[in-house]
């Protein structure tokens, strides 16, 4: 296969992991997170530094990256998710920007220059092995009591609590799991592109991931997968048609988010009841 297509296929795989993990937080549990790319970045930097500076084997470095992202998720999740309301959205918005600031200013992360000379370990097979593992484990989680609790929280937090679900703990768990997978995707990204800098993991990337989930279908793993594929491949296609269109990508995401919420909140795949009208019987 042409190496250009292999690259697109690999990036699609990484984006699929990002989208299905954000879907766990936003789609299944109903908590809007706006720093998914930041967790990806934490994973990427941790894995890279572990491999480059400490000489840790790559597979272990990938997992270390995922764990450190999960740890940060825990630190942000505990104060914001214990509360009712939408504090998570704004807290993650701030956290993402502050982390970018820190990455830009620290010496060990190479500041705005980023980190170079990362060995290329990720290939299309590794990525899709990870995609399979992530989707398999997500399906197992969603079919367990834990997954059902996530959905209960999304549907009605008060009712879930009345049913004996510790909503705060489950919300934090969903958020930490989402961060873990995003950290894994970040490690894969770093070992594929061999160069990372803080701007790869900014707010715009978080919005891109959110757009994938919203387009494909909130609360639907395969919808998120489809959304990731479309939003990765479509800009590449459009770029070959006209480079000007690529400039308008972010404007398009903005319109997409609003339009999908108004006309098709369940996304392309549909069928689930995430966005059912309030006050209707389920």
């Amino acid at each position: 296969m042409n190496s250009y297509y292999v690259q697109i296929l690999t990036v699609t795989g990484i984006n699929i992991i990002l989208a299905v993990s954000l879907n766990l937080v936003t789609g299944f549990t109903g908590q809007l997170s706006l720093c998914h790319a930041t967790f990806m970045g934490i994973g990427a930097y941790t894995a890279t530094l572990a491999a480059l500076k400490l000489g840790i084997p790559f597979a272990v470095a990938l997992i270390l990256g995922a764990i450190s992202a999960a740890l940060f998720g825990f630190i942000i999740g505990v104060p914001t998710l214990r509360l009712k309301g939408d504090y998570l959205a704004i807290a993650t918005l701030g956290f993402g920007e502050i982390m970018k600031n820190i990455l830009l200013n620290l010496e060990i992360t190479g500041g705005p220059m980023g980190l170079r000379g990362i060995p290329k370990v990720t290939n299309v097979y590794v990525v899709y092995l990870c995609v399979t593992l992530v989707i398999f484990s997500l399906n197992r989680i969603m079919h367990s009591r834990v997954g059902k609790s996530f959905i209960a929280i999304r549907e009605d937090e008060l009712a879930a609590e009345a049913m004996g679900i510790n909503t705060a703990n489950f919300k934090i768990l969903a958020f930490v799991l989402g961060a873990f997978y995003a950290g894994l995707a970040g490690g894969l990204y770093a070992f594929f592109f061999r160069y990372i800098n803080p701007n790869n993991f900014g707010f715009m990337k978080s919005i891109e991931i959110l757009s994938m989930v919203v387009l494909g279908g909130l609360g639907n793993t395969y919808g998120a997968l489809l959304g990731a594929a479309i939003i990765t491949v479509l800009p590449e296609f459009l770029r070959s048609v006209s480079p000007v269109i690529a400039q308008y990508r972010m404007v398009f995401y903005g319109i997409l988010l609003v339009a999908m919420m108004i006309w098709r909140p369940q996304g392309i795949m549909g069928e689930n009841k995430v966005m059912k009208r309030r006050g209707q019987a389920a």
């Binding site: 109903g30 959205a89 308008y248 972010m250 404007v251 319109i255 609003v258 919420m261 966005m275």
Partner: peptide, 26 residues
């Protein structure tokens, strides 16, 4: 979106914000 779930207007709000910011950039 006034009658939909909590998260729908939040996502819509983010969409508006992104749209305005990037329209101004262009």
């Amino acid at each position: 979106l006034r009658k939909s779930t909590r998260i729908a207007p939040l996502i819509s709000a983010i969409g508006v914000s992104i749209f305005l910011q990037n329209a101004a950039l262009i």
